[in-house]
C-alpha cells in the first residue's frame, strides 16, 4: 500500500496557545479575586516555580511548589490587588516552546495592581495546559510615577524662551552643587551598575547623586574613558 492510499487520520484538536493562556489568566484572576488558596494551587504544577519581581512580595526571591506559591500569593493579594490579567499587546504572542527541557506554552501578559502596572510570563505545561510550570510577575511602573521617557521626557520649554535667564547647563551646574538640599539617593561607584541604577532613579524623579568609587579616585568608574 502506497503512502498516498493510507487513510487520513485526523490530528487531535490542538487548542491555540493564545486560548490556553487566556483561559489560564482568567482562572488566575478569579482565584485571586476570591482569595482561594486551593484555586490558586490548582493553577500550578506541583513542582511549579514563581519568580515575583516586587509586584506581590516587594522582593525578588523565587518560590517553589504549588502549595507554597498559592499560600504566598494569596497572602500578598490583599495588599497587591492584582487584577485585569490579559495577554500583552505588542509583545511576542503566546507560543509553544521548550524551556528547561519541558514542552510549554509560553505567554506574556500584563496586569494592574493597587499601585501600578506589571508584566508577566507564564509557561503552561504542554501536557496539562491548565497548570503553570513557571510564572514570572513584575512591577513595571508605579501609577503616577511613570518613567520620564518618550512623551514624558522633560522638554526644556520652561527655560528655552527665558532669554538672559538660566539655561539647561546653568541649572545642571547649580543642581549638582547640592547647596540648598541633600540628595535622596547616593550611588557609590560609576561603573555599569552605578550608572544604570542612577539613570533608573533619575527617570523616576528621585534626586540622585552619583559618585565614583573612592578606591578608584583619578579614574571615575569603569566607563570613564568612554564618557570623556
Amino acid at each position: 500500500m502506497s503512502v498516498a492510499n493510507q487513510p487520513i487520520v485526523a490530528e487531535p484538536a490542538v487548542q491555540p496557545a493564545t486560548v490556553l493562556v487566556e483561559q489560564w489568566l482568567a482562572r488566575l484572576d478569579v482565584a485571586l479575586h476570591g482569595a482561594s488558596q486551593a484555586s490558586v494551587a490548582s493553577l500550578f504544577a506541583p513542582d511549579g516555580h514563581w519568580r515575583d519581581l516586587l509586584a506581590f512580595t516587594w522582593s525578588i526571591t523565587p518560590c517553589q511548589g504549588a502549595d507554597a506559591i498559592a499560600a504566598l500569593m494569596v497572602s500578598k493579594q490583599a495588599s497587591t490587588k492584582a487584577r485585569g490579567f490579559a495577554i500583552a499587546k505588542g509583545r511576542t504572542p503566546p507560543r509553544r516552546a521548550q524551556r528547561a527541557g519541558v514542552d510549554v506554552i509560553e505567554g506574556i501578559f500584563r496586569y494592574e495592581t493597587g499601585i501600578g502596572r506589571g508584566f508577566g510570563v507564564v509557561r503552561l505545561l504542554a501536557t496539562d495546559p491548565t497548570r503553570a510550570f513557571q510564572l514570572m510577575t513584575n512591577l513595571h511602573e508605579l501609577r503616577g510615577f511613570e518613567e520620564r521617557t518618550g512623551k514624558r521626557r522633560p522638554t526644556g520649554e520652561a527655560y528655552s524662551r527665558n532669554f538672559g535667564g538660566t539655561n539647561w547647563k546653568d541649572q545642571r551646574i547649580s543642581s549638582e552643587r547640592y547647596a540648598d538640599r541633600e540628595p535622596t539617593a547616593l550611588v557609590v561607584g560609576g561603573g555599569q551598575a552605578g550608572l544604570t541604577v542612577a539613570a533608573a532613579l533619575g527617570h523616576l524623579g528621585v534626586d540622585t547623586l552619583a559618585k565614583p568609587s573612592p578606591q578608584k579616585s583619578g579614574r571615575s568608574g569603569a566607563w570613564a574613558g568612554m564618557a570623556r
Binding site: 516586587l54 516587594w58 513584575n138 512591577l139 541604577v197 533608573a200 532613579l201 523616576l204
Partner: peptide, 8 residues
C-alpha cells in the same frame, strides 16, 4: 527594580 523600590 532598585529604582522602583526606592521610589515606592
Amino acid at each position: 527594580y532598585v529604582a522602583l523600590q526606592i521610589k515606592a
